[in-house]
């Protein structure tokens, strides 16, 4: 197990290196350069300025030379400045955007898990009941509805028609001065709709998995044994069945964790939420390469780590699985 873990972690280094080369090359292939925005936004910008900045930023050199400069500084933790926001790219990504995304996506993941597990168990225990059919149908709807449309519908119903909740953004400006309680309530109110929209797909997928996983387990012989020795049904379901049925879901959750860091560009766009997804999208389109690089590399790292984590969790939970 330890050897497997070490091998996977070591293999992650060349993979990350390759990803950084490919992403850098792709971004360099993209038409336009980081100076475009300055040039088109400023009428006094002369061609001499342009050439000076091209030289200054090293954009006259081929992409592999620039990549080498980037890499040699990145390994020391310096990811360069964001030309768009006038601050270090890492500071913009980790200080300004990451907390917002962690809040929104993390909360969505928790909500999805907290709903999916009991819902799946309930449906499995009352198979072919009305509730089971209703939830199964709802799951199909959940994975089929585009998240941006669901967001728009939620805004229409809950903020335009009913006026209960705000339609977007992080919070009301200036509410912090009314005290901590008002601030917290305001932030929470702004979270409700985006969390509902974002958690829908995972809620649906996990409920389905939980249901079928529970159905597989519930007819096993050790469950019959547990019932036969007179354990109350509650203990049979929660202690014996659920523990085994939840394993595949744990893997799915582990694989969903990177999404918590990458954010959700569509949901963030609908709700005007300044998170990572939107940051990456804007950075790519505006040629703010340093921001795009640091964010994408950070997410890749998490994807690789969580893949390993999923394998390890699986092996730890099920002793029959061996990797060596």
């Amino acid at each position: 197990m330890l050897a497997f873990l070490m091998r996977r972690l070591l293999l992650a280094i060349p993979t990350l290196f390759l990803i950084s080369v490919v992403v850098y090359a792709l971004l360099a292939l993209k038409p336009g350069d980081p100076i475009d925005e300055l040039r088109f936004g400023n009428p006094g910008f002369t061609h001499a300025d342009y050439e000076r900045l091209i030289k200054l930023y090293g954009l006259d050199k081929p992409w592999y030379i620039r990549y080498w400069y980037w890499l040699s500084r990145a390994v020391r933790g310096d990811f360069g400045p964001s030309r768009r926001y006038g601050m270090p790219a890492a500071e913009f990504v980790f200080r300004q955007r990451m907390p917002n995304t962690l809040l929104l996506s993390g909360l969505s993941l928790l909500v999805a898990f907290a709903v999916a597990v009991p819902a799946g168990v309930w449906c499995a225990l009352r198979r072919h009941s009305f509730v089971d059919y209703a939830v199964t149908t709802l799951n199909f709807v959940g994975i089929s509805v585009p998240v941006f449309w669901l967001g728009i519908l939620l805004i229409y119903v809950f903020s335009v028609r009913l006026g209960w909740l705000p339609a977007g953004s992080l919070g009301t400006p200036g509410v912090a001065e009314q005290g901590l309680g008002a601030y917290v309530v305001d932030r929470l109110r702004h979270l409700v709709l985006p969390v509902l929209a974002l958690s829908s797909i995972q809620m649906a997928t996990w409920t389905r998995f939980m249901r079928s996983s529970m159905l597989e387990v519930i007819h096993d012989e050790y469950i019959r044994t547990a019932r036969a020795k007179g354990l109350p049904e509650r203990a049979v379901v929660l202690k014996h069945a659920l523990r085994n049925a939840i394993l595949p879901i744990i893997t799915l959750v582990a694989l969903a964790i990177p999404g918590v860091f990458s954010g959700a560009v569509l949901t963030e766009t609908v709700f005007n939420w300044p998170g990572m997804g939107r940051a990456i999208y804007d950075a790519i389109l505006a040629n703010d390469f340093n921001v795009a690089m640091v964010a994408l590399m950070f997410i890749s790292l998490w994807i690789i780590l969580c893949n390993i984590l999923a394998d390890v969790a699986y092996a730890l939970a099920d002793p029959r699985i061996r990797y060596d």
């Binding site: 993979t15 990803i19 490919v22 792709l26 292939l29 999404g259 990456i280 994408l296 690789i304």
Partner: peptide, 24 residues
């Protein structure tokens, strides 16, 4: 397998966004 690992390291729709950004 390495190539697949690299492509899968882009979560969700991000890979498509990067490709469209390059191609227009």
């Amino acid at each position: 397998q390495r190539a697949v690992d690299i492509l899968l390291a882009f979560p969700g729709i991000l890979l498509a966004i990067v490709v469209v950004a390059i191609l227009g």
